[in-house]
């Protein structure tokens, strides 16, 4: 692959079934080196399943029935579990929401950071330890020599998330999957971690797939955004374009439902009536149809494809022309 822009990760038509229902349906996106690509959506939209599928960590009930995941030209779906283990934590790594639950309580911080490096590079202990120390410095942990010998319970949540990032980045992965990395943290600590992630991506050229439900986090750190609804991408766009010109009714309503500077206090926020359809009730048409204020007949019978509405901006809606008015009313 010798394209002008280095695509670190390409996901094509990813479809994941649970009990015969496509809970992730035809999801495609790409992540460039040094780019933060956000997958945003509410509970049950399939964003976390997509993340797990990238790492080959899907639960047994879920199966990939279609699609291709390519990391730096390497087709991950063709790999055996053994081969996948060499990729995971090395060229592709993940951090989770709960840093304290992700760390081994019985191993020192130093041992846990060094482990990833030893496993993937087969180096000796002292070299791995020196590398671990460098990582602690890189993720902004003061007094690294003392921290290396400490256990997770001795550290705060924000500190533990920095450790997780150090573990995830020690092998200089091409892509880091971050699943709600700051949701469990306080706002001032969240700001520190987002800043850190942004700096590391810029310095190291790592691509990030950021899974989040928080539009504020998206606005702070993402370069591009894919909005997911009921297993499908509803809209995908560069971040400023998405917030300025949402072209799918779900995106427009989601943005208008977040209290912001422009909303007069105590005036009604936009809401989305109804609920996400259950997995066994996904019809033929657009999955947002039952809750959509601009839906027409065609929306029921035929799923709208993702269509380009501006450079790099695609939305899956038959009635994109009606969305602008919707955002206007809501705002």
């Amino acid at each position: 692959m010798s394209e002008a822009i280095a695509l670190a990760l390409v996901v094509e038509n990813l479809t994941i079934d649970i009990d015969g229902a496509s809970v992730v349906d035809g999801v495609s996106f790409a992540v460039e080196a040094g780019e933060v690509m956000a997958l945003v959506g509410e509970s049950g939209c399939g964003k976390s399943l997509t993340a797990f599928a990238l790492l080959g960590l899907l639960p047994d009930v879920a199966t990939i029935v279609e699609g291709r995941i390519t990391l730096d030209g390497l087709d991950l779906s063709s790999l055996s579990e053994r081969e996948m283990q060499r990729v995971r934590g090395n060229r592709l790594s993940i951090i989770f929401q709960e840093p304290t639950a992700s760390l081994d309580p019985l191993a020192t911080v130093g041992a846990q950071i060094a482990e990833a490096y030893t496993v993937h590079h087969g180096v000796g202990r002292s070299l791995a330890r020196a590398k671990a120390r460098d990582m602690l410095v890189a993720v902004g942990i003061p007094d690294p020599d003392r921290r290396l010998t400490q256990f997770p319970f001795e550290l705060s949540g924000g500190m533990c998330q920095r450790i997780m990032i150090a573990i995830a980045l020690i092998c200089a992965p091409r892509v880091l999957v971050a699943d709600e990395p700051t949701t469990a943290l306080d706002v001032t600590i969240q700001a520190q971690i987002l800043d850190l992630m942004k700096r590391l991506v810029a310095e190291r050229g790592t691509g990030i797939v950021l899974i989040t439900h928080d539009m504020g986090v998206v606005a702070t750190i993402a370069d591009r955004v894919a909005v997911m609804y009921a297993g499908r991408i509803a809209e995908i766009a560069p971040v400023e374009e998405l917030f300025a010109r949402p072209s799918h009714p779900y995106t427009a309503l989601l943005l208008a439902s977040v209290p912001g500077r422009d909303q007069p206090p105590k005036q009604p926020l936009a809401t989305i009536d109804g609920q996400v359809p259950a997995a066994d009730r996904l019809g033929e048409g657009c999955r947002f149809v039952d809750r959509c204020p601009v839906a027409g007949d065609r929306c029921r019978s035929e799923a709208p494809p993702l269509v380009e509405c501006a450079p790099g901006h695609r939305a899956a809606c038959w009635h994109r022309d009606r969305v602008a008015g919707l955002a206007g009313i809501a705002a």
Binding site: V187, T188, Q190, A191, Q192, L194, D195, D214, M215, G216, V217, V218, A219, T220, A222, V239, E240, F243, A244, L255, V258, G260, R261
Partner: peptide, 19 residues
């Protein structure tokens, strides 16, 4: 300044005090 506002333009223009 730490509150992530749902506005990419404002977020990026903001001078943030990171504690």
């Amino acid at each position: 300044s730490a509150v992530p506002e749902a506005d990419p333009v404002a977020q990026r223009a903001k001078r943030r005090t990171i504690l």
